[in-house]
């Protein structure tokens, strides 16, 4: 008999426990066991299913994240596209080589003042550095020798290179 076994076992291990009544001592509401009913049925099953909208919320969150990501990507792509295809604000900045080639160099140089040419040479020397300096050229030398001796064709060829 199990009960006898349990008593004998406790007698060996913890005999004091054999002297204690096992009946529950905790309070239970009056008539609890008589009135106890398990709430089962279609309504309960439905409640259980309805009580788990976490999946729905997750799905909504996922869609929201994807939509937000798509909007950000869209903004970046459109912004990048606009940046690359931005129209030039000053059309005068565009260098048209064909127009340059048609310029009559001699006439243009003649029209320039000596001070302007000196200023250009100083700037060009500073930009070119010491090795490629144009310091050996002066306004007088250019006007007397170089420009006079260079043909229009040679100048145009030089510019087109």
């Amino acid at each position: 008999m199990e009960n006898k076994e349990i008593i004998e076992e406790l007698e060996q291990v913890a005999p004091l426990l054999n002297t204690i009544a096992k009946a529950p001592v905790q309070s239970v509401p009056d008539g609890y066991f008589d009135q106890f009913q398990v709430q089962i049925g279609p309504d309960h099953s439905k409640t259980e299913i309805d009580a788990a909208p976490i999946v729905k919320m997750n799905t909504r969150g996922k869609w929201f994240s994807l939509a937000a990501a798509a909007v950000v990507i869209g903004i970046l792509v459109i912004g990048g596209f606009n940046l690359v295809n931005q129209p030039v604000s000053d059309p005068g900045m565009v260098i048209n080589m064909e127009q340059i080639a048609k310029i009559d160099i001699n006439q243009s140089v003649q029209a320039l003042s000596n001070d302007a040419i000196d200023e250009y040479l100083k700037t060009a020397n500073a930009l070119a550095g010491p090795e490629n300096s144009l310091h050996q050229y002066t306004v007088d030398a250019i006007s007397e020798t170089t420009v006079a001796e260079i043909s229009d064709e040679e100048l145009q060829l030089y510019l087109s290179e």
């Binding site: 002297t19 009946a23 905790q26 309070s27």
Partner: peptide
Amino acid sequence: DSNFNANQLEW
């Protein structure tokens, strides 16, 4: 618990 009795062995 409303029935609690600190001197009772069962508790």
